[in-house]
Nucleic acid binder design. Structure first.
Lengths: 266, 266
DNA sequence: ATTATCGGATTGTCCGACAATTAATGCCAG
DNA sequence: CTGGCATTAATTGTCGGACAATCCGATAAT
């Protein structure tokens, strides 16, 4: 486009019989690509601070504004992050929940239904529990049990209908699943389960106070799962997880929530 | 901070006992959030063109450069897209492959291993095949069969080692899985399978020419899967998909590729 | 009606500037 | 010589404005 030292430009190509690709990408995209390639190739390793904007813009031969547009793209993909209270951007590996948030949004915008999320959970969670039972460390087990304990506390301390506790009960459910996923030793499965969980949580807020016994049933399932994980009983863990997930479905039905409704997102 | 009776301090705020959040987010992020909320809330529906940059910047009370940074973020998440050869940005639902690319990158940067991808595929794909067998339409079945036919052609036409065809064979494998996922009727599962597929494809490039019979075994599995899908035999579909996935593992082993290697990404 | 032409609108990119904040530096006391 | 504090330099966030290339819509020519 408008570049500084563009000398005389002949409108017609002189002789080359071959044509260059007509569709040139804008500079901000090429810049983003160039930087992300370096990150992917580990030339820039995570934790490493990026050069200053002025410096980087000079190196890449673009204006700072242009560079900035590229940086926003990388930042939003989690390839760059700003450490708390610091100015400089540093290279980082994307945080799972940030990635998952994007996936959640995509699913929500695609009008995915609660039924689809339920089905996916039914596919994913039992194997996750199985893997966790087989591979969990002592510390991971402790974390899972702590999450279960917290749910029990939160869920027990209030009569059904006390909406103040709804949020923390749902959050505790999330914490339990996350701890379990972390213990599975499979980051691909863990990452994939995260968006489902995020979407489940949104719907759970509506369900947990309307389905009688929902809290009690969840607490029960968590206890059984903890026991299975403690005993490293993969079969039982998978089994109980299956029951647990199916219970969610029952909860939605009892609460009168149509499973064909599309999921909401934060 | 809180001193007892320090009456001499003049700069203390006069009356407001409440403080605003200290950590204000930059404008470009607030702007991005504001716009994305509208999109999520369907106030801006997909296909709808965004106002011009000048206009939008004015409405939001920020400079065009600032707005632009926000737009790049939304664009990179697939919430906005530029229709081919057009200038204006239009609201859009994120394309699955774009989302999946972000997930793939995240997994690769997290040093996820081939073994983890394999395990995830083993969890995900058989239920996907099962769902596809149950719900596939005639058109979807045709698409799957077409993909299988293409793989057979590509895989058969060249002697093993002809690296020219490697790329198209791998692409055909991808097309087959994608067609199958699309027929599953579960967009959550389909979206989650996509990053696994992307990563598998990268590794397949290395494997398919080094593992004897890889092509033939893949073709066989695809034929059997097509038969099961055609007969709407969910059990058989799940079964063959399981074998198919396990075959990939065998292929890696035969090719001498360590499953503990981390996956690569485009 | 179809195509060629023209002017205005819009995007991509750049230049430059400045306040607020963070990082760096130098200075003084212990 | 080291630790703490004040001052200065550097960096980011945001803004105003500019301009070429391109796209869009309308109008004129075939």
């Amino acid at each position: 486009m408008s570049r500084p030292a563009d000398t005389l430009e002949a409108p017609a190509p002189p002789s080359p019989p071959r044509f260059a690709p007509v569709r040139a990408e804008p500079a901000y995209r090429r810049v983003a690509l160039a930087i992300s390639e370096r990150i992917l190739a580990r030339t820039l390793r995570d934790g490493e601070p990026l050069p200053t904007e002025t410096e980087l813009a000079a190196q890449l031969g673009v204006h700072r504004s242009t560079l900035r547009e590229a940086l926003r793209e990388l930042e939003s993909h989690g390839l760059l992050e700003r450490r708390k209270g610091s100015k400089r951007l540093v290279v980082s590996r994307p945080a799972p929940e940030a990635i998952a948030r994007g996936v959640s949004r995509a699913l929500a915008l695609q009008d995915v239904t609660i039924a689809e999320i339920y089905e996916a959970l039914l596919v994913l969670m039992p194997p996750l529990a199985e893997a966790a039972a087989r591979r969990r460390s002592a510390a991971e087990l402790a974390a899972i049990e702590a999450a279960a304990a917290r749910f029990a506390t939160v869920a027990g301390e209030s009569a059904p209908g006390a909406s103040a506790s709804t949020g923390s009960a749902v959050a505790a459910v999330g914490a339990f699943f996350r701890a379990l996923a972390a213990a599975s030793g499979n980051r691909a499965l863990a990452l994939m389960h995260e968006p489902l969980l995020q979407l489940l949580q949104r719907s759970l807020i509506l369900m947990i106070d309307r389905a009688p016994n929902a809290r009690a049933r969840i607490a029960r399932a968590q206890r059984e799962l903890c026991a299975a994980l403690g005993a490293q009983d993969a079969g039982s863990a998978a089994d109980w997880m299956g029951k647990h997930v199916r219970d969610f479905r029952r909860g939605f039905e009892l609460a009168g929530i149509d499973l064909r409704l599309r999921v909401a997102v934060a």
